[in-house]
Structure formats: C-alpha cells, structure tokens
Design a protein around this nucleic acid. Sequence first.
DNA 1: TAGATTGTTAATCGATTAACAATC
DNA 2: TAGATTGTTAATCGATTAACAATC
Lengths: 207, 207
Amino acid sequence: MQKNILPREVIIRLPKYLRYLRELALHDKTKVSSGELAEKLGITASQVRRDLGQLGVNGHNGFGYLISEAHRKIAEEVGLYDSQKVAIIGAGNIGHALTSHRMFRGRGFELIGIYDRDPELIGTVINGQQIKDVETLRDIPEPERPGIIVLATSSESAEETARFAASLGIRAILNFCYTDLDLDDVLIENIHIDDSLMMLSYQLNHK
Amino acid sequence: MQKNILPREVIIRLPKYLRYLRELALHDKTKVSSGELAEKLGITASQVRRDLGQLGVNGHNGFGYLISEAHRKIAEEVGLYDSQKVAIIGAGNIGHALTSHRMFRGRGFELIGIYDRDPELIGTVINGQQIKDVETLRDIPEPERPGIIVLATSSESAEETARFAASLGIRAILNFCYTDLDLDDVLIENIHIDDSLMMLSYQLNHK
DNA sequence: TAGATTGTTAATCGATTAACAATC
DNA sequence: TAGATTGTTAATCGATTAACAATC
C-alpha cells in the first residue's frame, strides 16, 4: 500500500506480466528469464528486469525469476487478493454485457450489482442480475460500498452520475462514456471505443 | 494518406481534439486559442500548437485557430469522411452490445454486420441485427469488405479468428479479447477491460 | 499601434536501452 | 569451473515544455 507509485508506463504492463506468467505456469514452467518474458511482451530484457526490480520482484542470479513468486508479488501489488467490490451504473447494452464479464468471476473483482436511474428498467432482471435503483447505493453501509464503479450511462448523465458516485466515497471509475471526466481525488480509466476506432482509422489512412 | 505517421502519443489525442472542437462548435464558437484547447485537454499550449502544426492545421497569428477548419482537417486525417466499413465478429454479450454503438450511426464508421461461428446463433436476430456465418465474409466482394473488424469472440478463438480475418485482407482489428494479438501487417488496438480494472486497482492500492 | 497568439527553437525531462560487473 | 542471467549504471532517445521572435 501507499508506497511509491510506479509510472503509468509500467502500470500498463502489470496486467500483461500477470497474463504471461499465468500462461507459463499453465504450461508447467516454474522459472523464466527476463529475456524470455521480454520476447513475449515485445519489450527488452532490460526493461523487464527494471520493471520487476521496481515492483520488488527479485530474480535469482544466473537462474532467472520464479514464476509463482513473480506472479504472487505482482498480483499482490495490483491488489488482486483483496477482491475489490465493483458496481456497474447504467443498464444499457454495455452495462448489461459487462455483468457477465470474466473479471467478476473470482478473478479479483466482485460485482455487487447493476444500477440505473430509469424507473422502467429498475427491477427488471437480465442476465440473472436485477437492476437496482442507483439511489440505493447510498444505503449500502460504508465498509461494503464498492471502491470502483463501471460507468456505462449515456454521455449526458455521465458527469452527474460520476459526481454522485464520488459523493458516496467511490474513488475509482472505469468510464465507458463518451466524455472526459475530471474529478478531484477520483481515479479514472477511460475505455473510449470511439477513440480506439478512430486511432485505427487514422493508422489505416497513413499506411 | 501514407504521409508521415505521427507518434502514438499524438494519435491518442486526435479523438480528444475532435471531441472538444465539436463541443466548442456546438456552443457557437468559431475560434479557439491553443491555450484554451490546452486547458480542456489537460496539456500545455505548446503541445497543442505542436500537435496541430504536425497535423497541418494552421493557426492565425495573434488570433488563434478556426474551429471548423481545425475540425475538418483532423477529421480528414483520421479518415472520418471515408466511412470505414466495420464487421463485428463474435455475437456474445459484448459483440451484441456494440452493434448499437453510436459510432456506427453516421459517425464515420459503417457496421456491415455481426458474425459468429456458432450454428446455434447464426440466423438469430438480436437488436435488429441478424447474426451471419463468419464464413460468409469470404463471399463479400473485395471492395466491399470491411477494413476493420471488432473482435469479440472467446479468448480461445481470438487468435484463429484474427488470422482468418487477416487472410481475407482485413488490415485492422479492434480487439476485445483477453489475448495479445500480433499479426504481420495488421493494426491492432486492444480494449482490455481486465487490464483497465487492474490498473485502477493498483492505483487504489497505492494512494 | 498595442495586444494577442502563433510557430519554432533550444532546453528539459523521463523512460528506454546497452553494457557489464557481480553472482549463482 | 564455465555458463547463464541478474541488478544497476551510464548513455540514448524522444516527447514535452519554456521561451521568444515573428506576425496579424
């Protein structure tokens, strides 16, 4: 906790390390060298060694890294063992699709529910999830409140909903809305499908 | 086309420029300074001027940038006027949700259909879209084939499906699968929801 | 003209990489 | 031991920023 936070460039790579380490473990490997990991990630061995070092993962001289050790340490740093509580707000297409995301099945995150403001939707059940009134988030006692919300409302209500969530003490938002959010003391990660499509389009145009 | 390609850092900002320029235009503004744009984007005025300069958007000395001019030029560079054809492959939750994405309603991309391999799914209609057999992509005559596919299959079939698409001449993939793809001559943009959640979790753990 | 703002140069900053002594 | 591989330093690279002359 609250140790030195790594630069964003490194944070982006953490899930990829976990992915490859897990894959190697599934293939019954027990150790891996920085060179081997580097090749999988498409980066240099130097960078792998530096990243792992910064994470506090120690290799073994002339030998490499123990896969289980490295995986455990990174998963711990990412907070995967704490099973963050997550609420989805916005029961449109995307919100619904996300309720059955693999991440919410014992992979470090616990989905506590899907919420919306629309009276037409509240109470209906889709995907085995009953849509709840977003206002009922207030009634959840502090310690059980989600730390992360997935924001999948319309772009128009995105900002207001984000503020509402922040007022309840939510400190992190995974934003699927077509809006750039900026709230004090709230971490935001954007998933802008629009932007990604445009980036592909730009690159296609210039190849 | 095929002029000098900008560094990824700049490409990432292009959709944001478009977003803010559009917003300003909706507010009946006609000009904007680099300082004003910079504040909205959360970057420096220097960077805005440099970005726009690299894009071939010329400002006017002592005056600023004409919003319509800047927007048109960037939209052109991104290829928004060419209306790229897009096919979704994988008719699971995510694939379905994406069929009704705003991007496919006259915003520069044209959805030509949603495809799957599962005989159980093929032919069924959801969201007004009939699911087609992925093999029928072959039958589309060259010029009408999509340039971009949205890959939303299971992680297991992701790689095989991506190769299949590449063999049909598809040159760009928006990848929603939990896999890192790497194909020669195919542009990939990843939307890794898992990774984004983990990044939030890491940051929460270290704040 | 005076004021505002661009376009561009040169300085800065920070991440990446190469290289290699230390070590098992 | 010889070979492999780490951990770390110093060099490199490239994006960002500050500064300011040029210009409307």
